[in-house]
Computed example of a mutant assay.
Amino acid sequence: MPDIFVNYRTGDEESAATVIARELALRFGDERIFFAGSSIEPGRRFPVELVRAVEECEALLAVIGPRWAEVRGPTAAPPSKPSRTGRVARSRPRSTAGSW
């Protein structure tokens, strides 16, 4: 599993995240960089692969662009806010049947 996870919000600075991931791959090698657009194989469950990659990475680089607070997910909820520790809480739906 890759060491560095490059995280970005779809619709906000994808091009910058792509350039960052490419430059990191040139310096450290493709196999050490996780970038969802190129690291998840066709047919794999996208959310499962994202969570697994985050849990196994050594470093996560979050690319936050000017529209970060405006981008909404499928529930139209605003983005999670970091806690005092700087970590972002991730919650799962009450019923996990058929998801993740």
Rank of each mutant, 00 (worst) to 15 (best):
A16N: 11
V63T: 11
L50P: 06
A76F: 08
S38W: 10
A69F: 03
D30Y: 10
P66H: 10
G73R: 07
V63F: 05
L24T: 02
L60N: 12
R22M: 11
I40S: 01
A76V: 00
F28R: 13
I33C: 00
P47E: 11
R44E: 09
L50N: 15
F46S: 13
V71I: 13
L61E: 01
E13V: 07
E56C: 08
G43P: 14
G37E: 06
G11Y: 03
E49T: 01
V71E: 08
A53Y: 02
P42N: 15
G73E: 12
P47D: 09
A21S: 11
P47Y: 15
R72I: 01
A16M: 10
I20L: 15
E58Q: 12
A62P: 08
F34L: 10
V54P: 00
R52Q: 10
V54Y: 04
I20N: 04
E55S: 04
E23Y: 03
V51E: 09
G11C: 04
S15T: 01
A69I: 05
F28I: 06
E13W: 01
A53F: 04
R45Q: 13
I33K: 02
F35A: 03
F46L: 15
E13R: 11
A17N: 09
L60C: 12
C57D: 02
S15Q: 09
R44T: 02
F34G: 08
I33Y: 08
P47M: 13
D12S: 15
T75D: 08
G37V: 06
R27N: 09
G73T: 15
F28L: 13
E23S: 10
L24K: 06
C57N: 04
E23R: 14
S39R: 10
A53V: 05
R32F: 04
R72P: 03
L61Y: 08
G29N: 12
V63M: 14
E41F: 01
E58H: 05
R67S: 06
L61T: 03
R32C: 06
E56Q: 14
I33M: 03
A16Y: 06
A59E: 08
W68N: 07
F28W: 11
I20W: 06
A62H: 11
R52W: 02
R67T: 03
P66S: 11
V51Q: 11
G73C: 14
A21M: 12
L26T: 13
G73H: 13
L50I: 15
E31Y: 04
T75K: 10
R45N: 13
